[in-house]
Design a protein around this nucleic acid. Structure first.
Lengths: 333, 333
DNA sequence: CTGAAAGCGCTTACAG
DNA sequence: CTGAAAGCGCTTACAG
């Protein structure tokens, strides 16, 4: 690989000079030298060694971005929100994915530290989040896109889950539903617990009791378990006329089952979160969409802010979702 | 940040000793020293500076993985295929996304060079691919997951598009369809052109002519333009009884439009590529799925192979898709 | 079994 | 306007 020294030799100059000319345009060198360096560098196909640069300048100017997976295009949207912010501030970013694996996540967080990244934006796994706590204790700024890890002193941006669930439930109430059930999944996620309490709040506001057989929990990412719950609801002596599902994947799975059994339209079904599939005309799921792109933007802005003010108190940034009424929530039959 | 020197000082040893003990377990040091170094390192929260390591060892042991976007979870699947391969070989990976932007893509490829990555696996933009050609000319091994850039001397893995289209067309023929139309999108992608020729091949095999009004092209990622084409087909004096769409997104958009107009089931529709949405019971699109995870695995294996044998001739690795028959392709009415 | 020294490729004061 | 020197944090022969 060609180095600054190679360029310098070829141009008959010193390495320092080459470095200056290639990096800062306001260095005072003769136009002639300047030109020669540019020419030689291009001619030799010189590419600076970023490792050496980062090492010597003691800064990576890079933010790590950690996702759990790349499904549902929310990672895509989030990045789209961050990119312009990083770009404008002259920061690079480095993506890693830990696939819901605690070990991989720990490794990714450690990698961020070893690469001396300036900060880390993470969609964390629920749990104690020891790796993050350690990173933060060692001075790495962290912004969570989630409220899972409320115990860790980091910024967090996410949508208000209680508000989202409350709004979608109110929508069903406004449509005239009175017997509304809640379909959750077993999880420690605060976000998901909040959604449940939002549902409860809306029902309480309407002075409607929620019998305990109207609240069921399935297993995450387990389609049969979700379908079974929906069937349980339908088989009740007095079945609900509407279901609020904890998430769009859960809701669309329920919808799919109804469709397969020729029972489509029999019960109103709403989700929370909005995924690309929900918008399809054949599914058309009423839901509350999360402003994922804006979340990305806010997270990026916040971490840059923190880079300049390490002493900032951790802030919980809460955004509001947006109710999207589609066809899956007709008035009660 | 604590460095080897700090650890060495605290342990009353030299930096070299600390380095040896922390890195290779087969170095010959007294168990006592060994233990002390481990303890001190842990106690001080030592994290090696990867930049310095990479610089001095002259190798990053990292493969770059470049995507155009993170939608449809194919990036997710592809990574899932690569991960175990990298893991086993002791390689890291670095993800970047260029969002179908030629400038961003160029920047990402250059970043890979500046970071001295050992190799690059890329889903490239169609076009000349100058950045890749340059990287390859400078000795960077590249594996494309695509056949867009056939002119560039790199390995490529992708599914046989002609075969996929041919198989799905044959399926329609077997179901008794004779008037089969093709709905494409305007693109320079070889993969997409192949699909079209596969359709033609299957029709030719069946001795069926393809009138030119039975082949229409919409715009990529433009829903109205796709829907308009479907309507054009339907309004024909002798409309087709089935449509082969160039991709699942195109097919599901067509399906959605039919559903919205109450014309669902009026015409058989098949896609190519399989996306999560296609499997939903409400959509149930017949298609040819791509073994994306295996593609990732093969790409990863190939680039590691190339790392050890720089002289390998570029190989086109072609996989077969798998026909998945769902409900969207009933027999003709 | 351990240490001193050189060097990876770069940037940055400091001289001149 | 340009060069020589030091040093970022690490690893790797080489001595002893």
């Amino acid at each position: 690989m060609v180095s600054v020294v190679d360029v310098a030799k070829a141009a008959g100059l010193s390495a320092g000079t080459v470095s200056q000319i290639l990096n800062c345009q306001d260095a005072r060198y003769s136009p002639r030298t300047r030109q020669r360096v540019q020419d030689v560098a291009r001619h030799l196909g010189y590419q600076p060694n970023r490792m050496a640069q980062k090492l010597v300048t003691q800064t990576s100017r890079t933010i790590g971005v950690l996702f759990q997976d790349l499904t549902y295009s929310s990672a895509n949207e989030m990045l789209l929100g961050m990119l312009p912010v990083f770009q404008k501030a002259g920061y690079d970013h480095e993506i890693s994915v830990s696939f819901w694996d605690l070990d991989l996540e720990r490794r990714d967080v450690e990698a961020a530290r070893q690469l001396r990244l300036d900060g880390l934006i993470a969609v964390p796994l629920p749990g104690p989040g020891a790796a993050y706590a350690e990173a933060i204790a060692n001075g790495m700024p962290v912004v969570f896109v989630s409220d899972h890890l409320a115990a860790i002193p980091a910024d967090s941006v996410c949508v208000d889950g209680a508000d989202a669930a409350c709004r979608v439930t109110r929508h069903l109430l406004e449509r005239g539903h009175r017997r509304i059930a809640y379909l959750g999944v077993k999880s420690e996620s605060l976000q998901l617990l909040d959604r449940h309490s939002g549902f409860r709040r809306a029902m309480a506001e309407a002075n409607l009791p929620v019998p305990k057989e109207y609240e069921l929990w399935g297993k995450v990412n387990n389609i049969p378990s979700i379908e079974k719950r929906v069937q349980q609801f339908l088989k009740l002596p007095v079945p609900p006329t509407a279901i609020v599902a904890v998430s769009d994947p859960v809701a669309t799975q329920g919808l799919g089952m109804l469709h397969r059994q020729g029972a489509a339209g029999q019960i109103a079904l709403a989700g929370i979160g909005d995924v690309p599939m929900s918008d399809h005309d054949c599914i058309s799921l009423t839901t509350v969409s999360e402003p994922v792109r804006e979340m990305g933007r806010r997270a990026a802005e916040r971490i840059l802010e923190r880079l300049n003010h390490h002493e900032l108190a951790p802030a919980p940034i809460r955004l509001r979702g947006k109710l999207i009424v589609r066809d899956s929530t007709p008035v009660p039959q």
